[in-house]
Design a protein around this nucleic acid. Structure first.
Length: 125
RNA sequence: CGACCGGAUCGGGCGAUCGCGCGGUAUGUUGCCGAAAGGUAUUACCGUGAGGAAAGUCCGGGCUUCAAAGGGCAGGAUAACGGAUAACGUCCGCCGAGGGUGACCUCCGGGAAAGUGCAACAGAAAUAAACCGCCGUCCAUAUCGGGCGGUAAGGAUGGAAACGCGAGGUAAGAGCUCACGAGUUCCUAUGGUAACAUAGGUCCGCUGUAAACCCUAUCCGAAGCAACACCGUAUGUGGGAUCCGUGUUCGCACGGCUGUCUGCCCGGCAGAGCUCACAGGUGGCACGCAGUUUUCUGCGGAGCGUUACGGAGACGUCACGCAAAGAUAGAUGAUCGCCACGACAGAACCCGGCUUACAGAUCAGGUCGCAUU
């Protein structure tokens, strides 16, 4: 299943303000039910609800190369986490990188995210 | 062998598993999103996918739009000389100054003799000079001294004080005169395409600063891919116009006006019952064009590489070969194993440069020293 990115800035603001929050070792996760989920599901040829994922990496972390790697590692971690423990659909998920992510591996992120989704009640029934 | 000098190339590799963007083939749906334009399937396979600086955005060009890029003003850039180039503020060669035993390196580059300005502090005085001193003369006087004049040799200040030094000369002095030396302008000869160098003559006495204004020569129209083109323009937001005068054959024309030519003026262009801009999409955009339909042929080009030839070199010519990264919250990766473990760092229209950052590796050259022959 492909990742669909959050493009609108106001959705990030909403997630920060009203979403559920979990602080992990390497990332901070916000989740919020997606009002447009059913509409997007109709557009999806598989007719399933999907999660929209936004990844935030601030300039504080470092140069473009470092930021790019952080995003890749988070994407891979999300993919692995979704594969091992099914995540509920129809949510906005914002993942914010923390400073120590520079040295993290994608498996570390996977553990962080799996724990986060469990705590946030995101695991599929 | 050691110490150096300038240059070129590379800048993690291999394997396994899992993933992403783009192109293609097969499979497959006729659905869904959207007002429309348009976008989008699942799976498998094949191909392809960041840099030498992709960076800074400092120059130059292509491309695009502004009717065309015409004239002038303003503004900007450059600055010895000869060449290279599509072009450049780049590159090559060379001139000048300095450093190194050397390979080689570093630095500056029109005009201060067109004009204006500025030169703090110090100093008597900063582009024009008399504070001390020296000399003459007058006054006064036991002596010290004072007035007037001459003087730039000496002292003191300063980054800079009327070229340096010696002789003549003088009351004392002074390029005032002369020899030698350094410099400026111009002329001649020789060498060089030239800047310039060398030699000879002539003339002059002129502080520095042009990254102060300025003057001279040369060049530059402006803005940038969020450009721009096309499609769509339902709805929303914002703006403009539907105005005035004159003439009128009542259609309109001209002028004002408004917008626009993106600093200004001249000189233009456009405008009216709707129109413009923004919000959407596709292209631009991944060598181009044509043929042909397949991943093929031809042509073209400041594209890249190699060879040959020409040139001192930058570079040029010919031949051959190569050239699908193309994202859009932004793909080009993740994990594991082994080896090596030490860098700077991520394309956003495309090229040529410059500048800045940078661990290590490799390759030829060259210089000096020592040893050997």
């Amino acid at each position: 299943m492909k990742l669909r990115a959050i493009t609108e800035n106001h959705l990030y603001s909403k997630a920060y303000a009203r979403g559920k929050k979990f602080v992990g070792r390497f990332v901070v996760v916000y989740t919020l039910p997606d009002y447009a989920a059913s509409k997007l599901a109709k557009a999806n040829p598989e007719k399933e609800k999907i999660n929209r994922v936004g990844i935030t990496v601030t300039k504080k972390l470092g140069s473009a190369v470092i930021r790019n790697r952080a995003k890749r590692v988070i994407r891979e971690g999300y993919r692995l986490s979704d594969k091992s423990a099914k995540i509920r659909r129809g949510f906005l998920i914002v993942i914010v990188a923390r400073g120590n992510i520079v040295k993290a591996k994608s498996t570390d992120i996977e553990r962080d995210l799996t724990l986060a989704f469990k705590k946030l009640g995101m695991n599929a029934l």
